[in-house]
Structures are given as structure tokens and as C-alpha cells.
Write a protein that binds this DNA or RNA. Structure first.
Lengths: 125, 125, 125, 125
DNA sequence: GTGGTCTAGACCACA
DNA sequence: GTGGTCTAGACCACT
């Protein structure tokens, strides 16, 4: 299904969340689809079931999946092909934003970049 | 000089790093400038000197300051007001911006994120 | 695993770094291998866990190991038996050798230095 | 006379020692020459006289200079043009030697390099 | 006085 | 159990 980067500092449970979102962005997982059982996925990835369970709990909290006892976990409408990619893009944008702030780029500069981007982008269509 | 947010999940030593980078990016600290002594800053911020020392070590590893025993710590050229790091941050921001545009995030959403970021981050005062 | 020379002027944390590098260069530790936990090693060596943690952080900065919370620390590819670092060390040695020759240091003197170095350093046992 | 690198981690007093040895290697300072007074040199270099005094003490301990109260410090025969360069070369060689040891280069390899170097080098003459 | 090293504790998130 | 962060002390070499 996907791989865990054990060398990464990003918690495994978070990598699982991101990967499921990515699979949804790619259209591999669609709303209503059943995702693998906790134990199955844990075995596949070679990690502790508790860790997988934690990521499912996290995804459920965010409203991206819902779990039914005894049946499994399912993708919700909130994690459709387009919304998933959008979520990742927004996350990346947030990170870049904070980074820019730290290096003293001022707000106006950033807003100008946004406006340039949107102007250029919209005229292409 | 700046304030530490003890309620934040971001480690104190990292907050110190970020704040020094911000001060340099804002032009308050210039290359060659001496930054306050470990113990002095620790007292000012109301934290343990070891924590301050840790952030100085971190900044030194990143090449932003250099420390000399018996003399103090100094800002390097790498941390000038218009450093390469700043340009990189702007570039990354541009990329994230385009990506967000491609995935249909609208302009207002992005501007809101910027405003949230700058609100939370601007504790330099 | 190895011994710390408490009488040495070389910081303990640096001795740990060096010893791990030596073990890896000797092929005892291979890329992917897990190194002992901070607390375990600290107990074995009879030192404070913080000191061990510091050396692990240092090794991680140099790219020789990577640490993951909850899992442990692992040797990276950069620290393989025939790593680039080793080749670099050999190159540096060659340069120093030629330089010594140019300044009239005689062969016996150099060989004596080598023997002194290897005598002091070979506490891997 | 020479410059101090304040950004370097090498203690200033040691930089002074090395620089005086270098000047002797270059033939600028010859045995019997008087080296500048502690206070003069301190002012020139922009450092504390205590630091200069310490390096002079160090050089005197190594037998490279001798100081006469009220008259100044003088280069000894031990620091002649050739011997000085040799000392530096030996120091560099020692460092390279330790480094090679750390990366698991074995003694025989190093000795082979030395022999190759001396073979190649002596036939050039 | 400066930063660097080390110890002996504590609490946290993650697995 | 793992590593990461933080505090409160101490001693050291260097300026």
C-alpha cells in the first residue's frame, strides 16, 4: 500500500495519516472505500498495531474516516480526490508561510506573491 | 529582547533560535553583532542557561552564529538581513503558492493563513 | 562495547562518537544496525544518559546515525565500512604525508607517530 | 604581523603560537629576533594582554622563545626556518593519523602510504 | 565574565 | 521502552 520511512523524524502514526490522505488524493482510495484492518496494515508495514490504531483515531478525529466496530474503517466524503490534495497543499503552504515569517519576509511581500501567482495562473486557463 | 511562549508546544530552545533569526532578518541584529551571553539571556527569559546554550549550539550548527569561549557569540554573514536563506524561503513560498493554486485553494483562504501565521508569530515586540 | 577514558581531556561525548565511528569502520556496526539505547549505554559506560544523548545528537548532525523517538538509533549508510569518510581520511593522510616529506621529516619519525596513535586509540577491544 | 580568526574555535592563545611558528617557518622571524612586546601585540591584535602573555608562556615552555624580564622575548635556535615548518607538518600529520584511525584505516595501510610517498618523493630529488 | 562539559534529576510524546 | 526537552546544580578552559 505504501512505505514508512523509519529514518524520518516524522512520527510513524503521522506518516500513516499523510499516506492515506495521499492515496485519496491520487484517487486510489475513494469515499466509501474500506481501508485495511489495523492488524493487517501493521503487519504489512512492520510496525506496532497500536501505532496504526493511533493514526486511525487521528484520521477519525479529523473526520476523514469513520470506523465501525467489527466491520472496519471507511473513507468519508471529506476525503474525496480533490479535497485530499487540497489539504496537503494547504499544509505545505502553511509551512512555507511560517518559514518566510521567520526569515523576516513581510506580510505585504507574501500577499503580493499570492496575487502575482493567482493573476498569472488565472489568465492561463 | 523577545518573549518565550511557555504554553507553546514548540521547544523553548527552538523558539530562541527562531527569535534570533527573526531579529537578524529584521535587521536588528547584524552580522558581527554580539548576542547576549548565555546566562544573561537565560535570566532575561526566565529559563535555564542550558536551554539557551542548546539553542546557541543549534544556531552554530546551522552556521548562523559562532561562539567563542571567553568572548561570546556572534552573528555570522549567513544571517544578514538579505541572506540566501531568506531568498530560499521566498522561493519555497512561491512554489507552495502555485501548488495551492493548482489544487483550487482560493486566494482568500491563503491570505487568511498568512494573517494567522503573522498574528501568532509576531511576538518580537 | 567500548571503554571511556575518564582521565582524557577529550570530552566523554566525543569519545563516544569516535568509538561508534570506529566500530562502524571496523565493520562491527553496519548500516541499518541499531545502536544501544541512550540509557543502556549510559549504564554500561557508567555515565549520565544526557552525555550519551549528546553524542547521539552529534552523530546525527554529522549524518552517521539517525534517532527515532520510541524506536532507537540506527547507523546510516554514511557510516559503512568503506564509506566516503574513510576515503577522505586516507586522502588527507596522504597529503599530510607528502607535506611532512617535503619538510624533511624522516620516515621513522612518521612511523613512530602512527604507532603512538594506534597504541593510544585502540581501546576498542 | 598576523591576524586572529575570532570565529575559529581554536583558542586565541594557540592561534598566536601557531602564527609565530609560521612566521619562523617563512623566515620572517629568525633565531635571536625579538618578538613584539606583550602589550604591543595585544593592542595590534585587539585582544587582552593576558591572552598574549599566555601564548608567550606556552612558546617558552616548548622552548621556542625565551623571555628576559625588562627586555622582551626572543626566538630560540629551536625555532629556525626549517624546524618550524617541520613542527607544523608533524602536527598536521598527527591529526590526519588520528582521523584515519577513527575511520578504521589500519596501521599497515598507513605505513604503506608512507612508504609509497617516500619512495616516490626520494626518486624525484 | 565567557561558552563548553557533565551530572542528576524530571516530564513528555511516541512505539 | 525509546529519544527529546528542560531544570538546577557543578567544574573547566579561555578572555
Amino acid at each position: 500500500m505504501f512505505q514508512i520511512d523509519f529514518a524520518s523524524r516524522i512520527p510513524i502514526y503521522e506518516q500513516i495519516c499523510t499516506n492515506i490522505i495521499k492515496l485519496a488524493s491520487a484517487g486510489v482510495l475513494k469515499p466509501g472505500d474500506r481501508i485495511p484492518a489495523v492488524r493487517t496494515l501493521a503487519t504489512q508495514l512492520g510496525i506496532n498495531p497500536n501505532t496504526v490504531a493511533k493514526s486511525f483515531r487521528e484520521l477519525e478525529n479529523r473526520g476523514y474516516i469513520y470506523s465501525v466496530v467489527g466491520r472496519g474503517s471507511y473513507i468519508t466524503e471529506a476525503l474525496s480526490e480533490n479535497s485530499a490534495a487540497k489539504l496537503l497543499a494547504v499544509d505545505e503552504f502553511k509551512g512555507a508561510c511560517e518559514n518566510a515569517l521567520n526569515f523576516g519576509v513581510n506580510k505585504e511581500e507574501l500577499i503580493k506573491i499570492i496575487e502575482d501567482t493567482f493573476e498569472g495562473g488565472e489568465s492561463i486557463d
